[in-house]
Amino acid sequence: MSQPNMYIQAAEQLSIQQPLSQQWMSEPVLTDHLLTTAMAPNYRDFIDPREARRMGGLIKRALVTTLKVLRDTGIEHPDAFITGTSIGSLVYTERLLDALDESEEAISPTYFMQSPHNTVGSALAIFTHSHGYNTTYSHGACSFDWAVMDAWMQMRLGKIHTALVGGYEEMTQNCFELLQKAGYVGQPGMVPCAEMSMSMMLNTQCSDNCLCQLSGVAMGNLAYRERMRQQLAQMLEAAHLSTTGVSAVMTGKNGNPDNDACYDGIVADLLPDAPLLRYKHLFGENYTASAMGVYAAAHCLAQGRIPDCLHDNNRPARCIKPSAILLVNQMDQQEYSLMLLTKI
């Protein structure tokens, strides 16, 4: 099987940070709120205001990051739209639930139409008139990672050459409070719970504007640690890298002791001496936060520098000029993903 290289050609975000901008690298927005909303872009630059009024926040943000990436790459119709979202259209789902608590007699069809998880991915296709492959992964904190894996597989199979892959999540006060009781967010010392939208273009063709190479992706069950080590070894071999060639490991530490201890265990298993990076203190926690990690790592590799704000202060080792970043993501201390990004 021929194995094409894969590149991240562009990646854009809406989050706590300045919209559609890499300003966070020099002037990060820091907040100590437990729950924060995404900073709004100028929607008019992308969507007709009349149309925008009919759209929910989740879809509007997904559309803006997607349209920015399509514009910047000049790719009007990517071969695939692959979406990761764990809770999907939460606002509409809760509106329908609220209405059901009142009565089953007067339900708005709009709430239901907008409620399935694939509303986002299909809205992107409808808006851009794209008939290509389209699917949605809703697998908790690995939703985005599976979306990347899908694109990776199909590129290896020669089925697609370009893929718009995204991670999109919104949050409501009600859901935040439930997740807080469940222990997922809002715990003492934790990063804020946040909304986020990140779209990126994967392309088998390298062009001048590509941010970095996607050199490997692997998923698995944390019960099988030996396989995880093998996956990393294979990934490094395919990228012609030794373990010391990995400039840094970027984890999803968020200040929650259980979560962070899990990452410590994985890093100790894989690359115990590598400098550590983190990103959730800048972009917040939510199920598709791993998309923000990929976004941040890709831009670091593109600019050839790692801003100080990304360094994990618990580790003295520093990486200034990155050439390869390993991203580690875990879900419920049961499942993991590994992604290797390398400079071009």
Binding site: S86, N118, T135, Y137, S138, H139, W146
Partner: peptide
């Protein structure tokens, strides 16, 4: 994703779990 985990849990530890929602 929790739904997939809950379905799988009775049978043991799968090599990986994933959830599609379209």
């Amino acid at each position: 994703g929790n739904s997939t985990q809950m379905i799988a849990a009775q049978f043991g530890q799968f090599a990986s779990l994933s959830t599609v929602s379209t």
